[in-house]
Every structure is written in C-alpha cells, then in structure tokens.
C-alpha cells in the first residue's frame, strides 16, 4: 500500500469536516430563509401581505385630491370557524392620503364562544406596500360569544406614493379559527 496513506487519511478527514461545516452553514441558511422571506415580502410586496401592526399617521401626510383610487373589500371565512363575515361596503372611492373607515360585520352562528384571527391580503401585491392601516380588527385575535354580532372596523389610508398605474386595490381578509390554527 501507499506509504503516504496515514497523512492522506488525516487530510481527508480534515477536508470532510470542513465540508460538514458547509452543510451546517447551508442548514443555517435554510432556517434564515424563513425570516428573510418575510422581510423580503415586506419590502417588495412579493406576496401581498400587509403590515400586521398599526402605522402611525405622519404629520406630513397630504391628501392627493387630484386622484381617485377604488378600494374593494372582500372576505372569506375558512372552514372550521362558525362565523359569518361580510364587508358592509363592497367598495369605496378614496383620495390617496385620505383616512377612511371601512367596516365588516361578523357573527358567531354557533352556541360556542370562538376566537378567530383575520389574515389580510392586498392585491395587486405591490399595492400592499402603500395600503396603511391605522386601526384594524386584524391586529388582534377577535372573540365572539355564542350568537354575538360585532362590527369590525378598519381605519386606513392609501399612501399618496401609490404608483400611478394602480387604480384598483382590493383588501381581503381570510378569517381563521385560532383553535384549528393551534391544533
């Protein structure tokens, strides 16, 4: 056999260990992709998700009265949540920068109290960057007693920086049961 073998075996083991570090780095990279994706979506509007925290109204906010944007409202209740959920207005014409109030009505149709979480989505995705919510029922979980009806408000404005080619923005909520979300 070859005389240099012990040295070579050591070298092989060292290189293999280094490559294991590469694998480790790739695993870390994978884990970091989850938050990275979230941040990337927030910055680019890649998946149309809006902020889940309220925005503070800036003093400098100006209403652009020369422009109209149509905002449509819709909602879905996902299977497993015994609620009815409908927007009280199907659409609104707004000026960018104007603070508006829209409401949805929710009703628990069962005899059991339930907790739900509304997940907002805006289309087109790019518009999600410019759709600012000051107050929204989707910021917290909502609970409804048996048979209870509740009006759910969302106070928002469309940023005047909304790209000029966007005239229609749709806000949609998917209401999930948090019971099923944690089972």
């Amino acid at each position: 056999m070859l005389s240099a073998q012990p040295n070579r075996n050591d070298a092989n083991r060292r290189l293999a260990l280094k490559l294991l570090w590469v694998v480790g780095a790739a695993i870390l990279f994978t884990l970091s992709l989850v938050p990275l994706y979230r941040v990337f979506c927030q910055v680019t509007g890649l998946n149309g998700k809006t902020d889940v925290r309220p925005v503070a109204v800036q003093k400098s906010l100006k209403v652009d009265e020369s422009r109209w944007v149509t905002v449509e409202f819709t909602g879905n209740v996902m299977p497993g949540l015994g609620w009815n959920f409908t927007p009280n207005q199907s659409s609104m014409r707004v000026h960018p920068g104007q603070i508006e109030l829209a409401t949805y009505e929710a009703r628990n149709n069962t005899n059991q109290a339930a907790v739900g979480q509304a997940v907002p989505s805006v289309s087109p995705g790019q518009a999600s960057l410019y759709f600012k919510k000051i107050e929204c029922f989707c910021f917290q979980r909502q609970s409804l007693k048996p048979g209870e009806r509740k009006e759910m408000p969302v106070r928002f404005y469309v940023s005047p920086e909304l790209p000029a080619d966007i005239q229609n923005v749709t806000l949609s909520y998917a209401f999930y049961s948090t019971a099923s979300a944690t089972n």
Binding site: M78, G80, G82, N84
Partner: peptide, 26 residues
C-alpha cells in the same frame, strides 16, 4: 335548548366546515 346551533354538530360541520370539509354556507 335555546335554539342555538350546537358547535361541532351535524349542521355546524356542514354549514361552517372543518379542516378538509368545506364551509358550505358560502
């Protein structure tokens, strides 16, 4: 007894769905 829909009853499952079962109310 008070006429309210019982959670997880037959009609609840059909009306509101659960997991794979769609919510037929829509």
């Amino acid at each position: 007894t008070s006429g309210k829909l019982i959670a997880n009853s037959h009609l609840d499952r059909v009306f509101n769905g659960k997991n794979v079962m769609p919510a037929w109310k829509a």
